[in-house]
Design a binder for these strands. Structure first.
Lengths: 202, 202
DNA sequence: TAATTAATGTATCGATCGACAAAGAAATGG
DNA sequence: CCATTTCTTTGTCGATCGATACATTAATTA
């Protein structure tokens, strides 16, 4: 039942990866169909046949980003013994990723659609909801820490999640502005150095 | 020697203010000439005669933003008795401004050109340099605190400035994402609660 | 008043935007 | 083989992008 008609002559995943890197670097609106087709090595009708539209391609690119780069955050949240180690891993892992040579600086989710024309407001909101969801994951992990006893009972988990998410987002701006890795790691050190004091509040 | 030829029929400052608010809300690239002329109440030849180009208009809009909204930051830095009060004032004042009803959420300098097409890279860098300059001002103010004795000698002023600038930038993303004022002020409380511990490091 | 200067409105420029129609090309099923 | 299906290529669509040419209008200067 597979393979009726002429087979696709390009690697869909490889093309998507190229698109993802371009969107990551330039953002949604600033990346044109001409840019995309050139980077992906295909013509626009092939792009539309395989992905549907520019916005649909972007959403797939975001999904790919979350599957790959986003794994840093996910692994830190699920694979750390304490809430503190989890948040530390999220920030430190991303500070390193944001300054990885050869990669666009900063986070695609944060930087790819901060400013949008009204007709692309849906794209902006798509990423905004993603960011708020990640903040929710941070909060969930911190609340787990309370339940497991590695975070003081009565800690303001929402405030902790909001603070560390704000630092998390700020790191992307700093990285895109050219701040070196050591500086970002220093910011993470500062943020994590505040953990005990913040967790003790209520 | 003034006023040769037909006088301008619109208020240049008022038109610039309209342009500034539009750039603030939508960013540089997402704001079209059609949007600008509609908001400013003038036709494009008048815009080009008065401001030169879209980019020149944007730079004037940024200058106006710094003269007005930027005053919050400048006053906090120059008019506070201690470095801690200065940084607190910067963050708290902007957290309030970022959630002022009727204003676009977040900071124009941070949000108006995070992602740009290659041909507008100069605009992105223009704002990026502005942000790094503000980080330098923060560092200068903290070093003044060391000199005046309200910050412990040996404090890592660069790390402090980098950390608080990261929080500063992150607040704009959070504000644009719809975080309420109370949440932003909670982030500021958290960041400032870490001051003593951070300032004591070296 | 006549000449000069500058801003205005109309209309449009070439380039580029995202998206697609139609024809040619390469596979499978009968 | 032929018919069918699907992808690729060529060419182009209407809309919009930033930016101007040109004629008109309104002020000052001589």
């Amino acid at each position: 039942m597979a393979g009726r008609g002429r087979p696709r002559s390009f690697d869909r995943e490889a093309a998507l990866l190229s698109a993802m890197r371009l969107f990551w670097e330039r953002g949604y609106e600033a990346t044109s169909l001409t840019d995309l087709t050139a980077a992906m090595g295909i013509k626009s009708p092939s792009l539309y046949a395989a992905f549907g539209s520019k916005e649909a391609l972007f959403r797939e690119a975001v999904a790919l980003y979350e599957r790959t780069e986003g794994g840093i955050t996910e692994r830190a949240l699920t694979g750390s013994a304490t809430a503190r180690a989890a948040v530390d891993g999220v920030l430190r892992g991303n500070a390193v990723a944001y300054t990885e040579p050869g990669n666009p600086r900063g986070c695609m989710i944060v930087l790819a659609a901060t400013n949008c024309a009204p007709e692309n407001e849906t794209v902006r909101r798509f990423l905004a909801e993603d960011r708020r969801r990640t903040q929710g994951l941070l909060r969930d992990r911190i609340e787990r820490g309370v339940a497991e006893g590695d975070v003081p009972a009565g800690a303001d988990t929402a405030a902790l999640a909001s603070f560390y998410t704000t630092v998390f987002h700020g790191l992307s701006i700093q990285a895109r502005d050219g701040a070196p890795r050591a500086e970002l790691l220093g910011v993470v050190d500062a943020a994590m150095g505040a953990w005990d004091g913040l967790a003790a509040r209520r």
